[in-house]
Simulated assay, not measured.
Amino acid sequence: MKYYPEISKIVSGALSGDRKLVLSYTELLCNKLEIDGETIALQGFKEKLLGFHNSDIASQSMLARPVPVEKDNRFSLADKTFPSLNQHNIFLTKDDNEVINSFISYILKKEQLNALGIPINPTLLLHGIPGTGKSKLAGNLAARLGLPLITARADALISSYLGSTSKNIRSLLEYARSEPCVLFLDEFDAIAKARDDKNEIGELKRVVVSLLQNIDNLGDTILVAATNHVHLLDPAIGRRFHYKMELKVPTEIVRHQLFTVLLEQFSFTNLEIDLFVTLSNSLTGAEIEILTYDYLRQAVVNEAEIDANELMRKILLSRFDWLSFNMDSRYICMKRLQETDIKLFTKKFISQLWNMSQSNVSKIFKENNE
């Protein structure tokens, strides 16, 4: 049943007399019905909601609150979205998948844990170099759980006014507690930097204290934080996160999955996909996605034929900033490619990359070695 998680929560709230829970999940269900084009069902639930909102009890619900804003400039402290799995499709290693599946199972068994008196701490810290999919994974989690994603805006959260940053953090985390959601704190080191950093002023150290206190009061709110600089985080931060995961550059298997999905509408052979995978070693998932879409976009706009050689060149140009396919620097670049991996960059493969015969490549090498 497609809307079972929301309907189940609505029924649970009704049976327990928790009107806030009923309101939260009814509004979440309405958002999903609107996205899916279920206009008749949407109208029915909206009428029910109107009745709730007109009652004294419903008017006290914190769910009706808009996303909080920064007091001085009125910028929104976060963006609220409703991610879909199509938009946030992500490829992980087997081990990383097990961690994420465990995290989701942990959240889904919240009621069982609470019934046994076991406190739940649904917090996940993601770290790794830029482009490894931290933000996309946060959206993927929200989509799989059927919850909205509340993404903090660092530019609004951090204020130049004394004490305002701590107030903004408290306001945002209190808002996240008021409705079912996944709260995502990106660039986490900006507000969670180690307090023993001598370069930081006292105000930012107070921000960390405020952050720790507010995380402790989140209860069972789902919190995902991400940073490119995990070594900068305050040591106390680590104890607040039940799950931690480092995202690395994609493995060969993950790159194969990624290229297969990115190019599924085009008639590339398995051998060509394998070459893309080999050539893209050390690139992040974001780099692969950007360069692939950039090439496809240019080809479509210019009405050019989709060509495997062109995409291979694009991949190599992303990896090696010294590489050029201009005729005047061809020997230097050919030689450097061979020095990088002589088994991969054979004269036959090089001739394919430069669109010339293998005999001409041999001639170029011979002329420059004399």
Rank of each mutant, 00 (worst) to 15 (best):
E6D: 13
K9Q: 06
V11F: 12
S16F: 00
S24E: 12
S24N: 15
Y25E: 09
E27K: 14
K32W: 12
I35N: 12
E38C: 10
E38H: 13
G44N: 15
F45Y: 15
K48L: 13
L50P: 08
G51Q: 12
F52A: 06
N54I: 06
S55H: 06
S61I: 01
V67Q: 09
S76Q: 08
D79R: 15
L85D: 09
N86K: 15
K94T: 12
F103V: 07
K110C: 05
G128M: 08
G128P: 04
P130Q: 05
G146P: 09
I150Y: 05
A152E: 00
L162N: 08
N168D: 03
L173W: 00
P180R: 06
L183F: 06
K193R: 14
K193N: 03
A194T: 14
V208T: 05
T221R: 00
A225D: 01
V230F: 09
L232I: 04
L233K: 07
P235G: 04
G238C: 06
H242F: 08
L247P: 03
P250H: 10
T251S: 15
E264I: 11
F266V: 10
I273N: 03
L283I: 05
L291W: 06
Y293L: 15
E305Y: 09
N309M: 07
L317T: 03
D321Y: 08
M327S: 14
D328Y: 08
S329D: 07
R330A: 03
I332Q: 11
T340L: 12
D341N: 15
K343N: 11
L344K: 10
T346L: 05
F349K: 01
F349I: 01
I350K: 04
S357R: 12
I364G: 03
